[in-house]
Amino acid sequence: MTAAQFRTVQQPLDPTAAVGEIALFDAGGNPLDLSGGGQKITSVKATALAAGTAPTATLANGVLTIGIPAGAKGAPGTAGVGVKSISLTKDTDGNITGGTVTKTDNSTTAITVTTA
């Protein structure tokens, strides 16, 4: 088993090709040479790591396993308010002139209707 660090190359990616580049480095920061008859990567596997841990990469039996740390968890957002009902008001000619929105927290908001 070869323990390795990995770094992604920061360059624009062609979305039509879906190809990226990964460079592998040993624990001392030296690039790994996989072309000289050593191990070859035959498949790649990604595993989730806990937030705050360092990324990992191992190469064993041709399988490159990359450990990717989770991002930091954000704070919970405030509860949302939805629409419970809408009632519309008509004038004597049947035209909609306004109305009221009742929200899921039972607050209400007037609906203003304007004509062009």
Score class of each variant (00 low, 15 high):
Ala4Ser: 15
Gln5Phe: 06
Gln5His: 15
Arg7Gln: 13
Arg7Gly: 15
Gln10Ile: 04
Gln11Ser: 12
Gln11Val: 15
Pro12Gly: 11
Leu13Asp: 06
Pro15Asn: 15
Pro15Gln: 08
Thr16Asn: 14
Ala18Cys: 07
Ala18Gly: 13
Val19Asp: 06
Val19Asn: 12
Gly20Arg: 04
Glu21Lys: 12
Ala23Ile: 12
Phe25Cys: 06
Asp26Ile: 00
Gly29Asn: 10
Asn30Asp: 11
Pro31Ala: 12
Pro31Thr: 07
Leu32Cys: 14
Gly37Val: 02
Gln39Trp: 00
Gln39Val: 03
Gln39Asn: 09
Lys40Asn: 09
Ile41Phe: 11
Thr42Leu: 10
Thr42Ser: 11
Val44Leu: 14
Lys45Leu: 07
Ala46Asp: 10
Ala48Asn: 08
Ala50Asp: 10
Ala51Asn: 05
Ala54Val: 11
Pro55Thr: 06
Leu59Ile: 14
Gly62Glu: 03
Thr65Asn: 12
Thr65Gln: 15
Ile66Glu: 12
Ile68Lys: 10
Pro69Val: 07
Ala72Asp: 11
Ala72Leu: 02
Pro76Tyr: 01
Gly77Ile: 07
Gly77Gln: 03
Thr78Ile: 03
Gly80Phe: 09
Val81Gln: 05
Val81Arg: 11
Gly82Val: 04
Val83Ala: 05
Ser85Trp: 04
Ser85Met: 01
Ser85Pro: 00
Leu88Ser: 02
Thr89Val: 03
Thr89Arg: 14
Lys90Leu: 14
Thr92Ile: 05
Asp93Ala: 15
Asn95Gly: 09
Asn95Arg: 08
Gly98Ser: 11
Val101Asp: 04
Val101Trp: 05
Asn106Met: 15
Thr108Met: 01
Thr109Ser: 13
Thr109Leu: 14
Ala110Glu: 14
Ile111His: 08
Val113Ala: 09
Thr115Asn: 12
